[in-house]
Design a protein around this nucleic acid. Structure first.
Length: 119
RNA sequence: CGGGGAAGCUCAGAUGUCUGCGCUACGUAAGCAGUGAGGAAAGUCCGGACACCACAGGGCGGGAUACUUCCUAACGGGAAGCUGCAGCAAUGCAGAGCCAGCUCCACAGAAACAAACCGCCUCUGAUCAGACAUUGCUAUCGCAGUGGAUUUUCUGGGGCAAGGGUGAAAUGGCGGUGUAAGAGACCACCGGUAUCUCCGGUAACGGAGAUAGCCAGGAAUGCCUUAUCCGGUGCAAUGCCAAAUAGGAAAGCUCAGCGCUGCCCGCGCCAGUAUGCUUUCGGGUAGGCAGCAAGAACCCUGCCGUGAGGCAGGGUCCAGAGGAAUAGACAUCAUCCUGCGAGACAGGAUACAGAAUCCGGCUUAUGCGCUUCCCCGGGUU
């Protein structure tokens, strides 16, 4: 039930995102989606490290999303933009970080949809 | 045994469980099978293949290279050799041309390419001493005057580049002739350089001999000179397919407008024309496909070559993504390090690093190991 964002033009849409969640390691713009499934993409710039470091980080993030038992919010598109310190995360640290971030996203989107339903 | 030198090679942790990914084949599908990073994939420093554009020929300009011969598709790469330097040696490092021109040579030093600080010699003048000769006086010793070989010091003019000291570097060495003093100015021998002849070598070059006083530096990773080579841009090349929107063309149907012009007149376009609708066509964007994985390929054997390498035969198929797969987690084992209570121990670590059109090199990064050959010193037989 997860769609990967690949296309460059779709990444460009997130520049104008209203909701942006920031943590120590990631910047995460959030956009609403007309599709029923959850969609996300990953952006890791060259400032994070060399190719080996960037590949490992991306694979761990993708592996985390495949294995996670948390229910992901539907009708939402996000991208994870890695910040400079993200390259030094261990698997355990990444697990805690992503769990925390996804919790914040669910809470925030839930509040906003409630607010829209009851003006 | 110790020390040193050279050439080359293997692996790139292993197995299992769970959860997954790209590509390919089969299947309607669910699925299932196969396959999936490197020695440097890196830096992008050279050279090519391939693609498009440009191109009669020549010159100027620019870039690269630089002992010789060879290897190669090509190279700035490699092999073998030559010369010089370093090392006891094995070996290592370097390589066109400063009598074509220009420029530079810190500090020190007189001077860094043409000169003269000390110095040596000579001339003029002054000056110190003065053998000797001569004149006068005197009985003699001696005193005074004149000339004066020679000589001390100084000023100025001229000659020299042998010696001193400085420096990374100062114009070949030694002996003689010569000269006022000296100097390849000249002579013998030696060293170097150049030219010529002979011999060896494809050549760089080496050996022998003769001739020439020729011997007045260094730096071309200074400008430069000489020789050779080089068109430009790059797979985001390039080719094909091709939505939506806007504009173009044509056909069919539809109907009387459209522009100058806000209004009227007038004029222009114009009768199957303007407008509208539908369809088709071509250009072309997003997007898709190809380029794109069987080649200067790899492995084995034989032959040729000192070698780089070449030839022949046999065998193998070995990643193909495109915001980019090749993974994540957990166990057990292996290797290494540290610690001590010394072993079925504990803790930690397991490098450098990720294909992007493809090859040949170079350079740099990097973990544990292994092999062969050579030199020097010591010991034993």
């Amino acid at each position: 039930m997860t769609r990967w964002i690949h296309r460059h033009s779709e990444f460009q849409e997130f520049i104008r995102a209203d909701q942006v969640i920031r943590s120590q390691f990631f910047t995460i713009p959030v956009l609403p989606s007309s599709e029923p499934e959850f969609a996300f993409g990953i952006t890791i710039g060259k400032r994070i490290g060399k190719a080996v470091v960037r590949n490992l980080l991306r694979r761990r993030i993708k592996a985390w999303f495949r294995q996670t038992t948390l229910s992901l919010a539907p009708r939402i598109r996000i991208i994870l933009i890695a910040r400079r310190e993200a390259g030094s995360l261990s698997w355990q640290q990444l697990d805690a970080e992503l769990s925390d971030v996804i919790g914040r996203i669910r809470q925030k989107t839930h509040n906003s949809t409630d607010h829209a339903a009851h003006p």
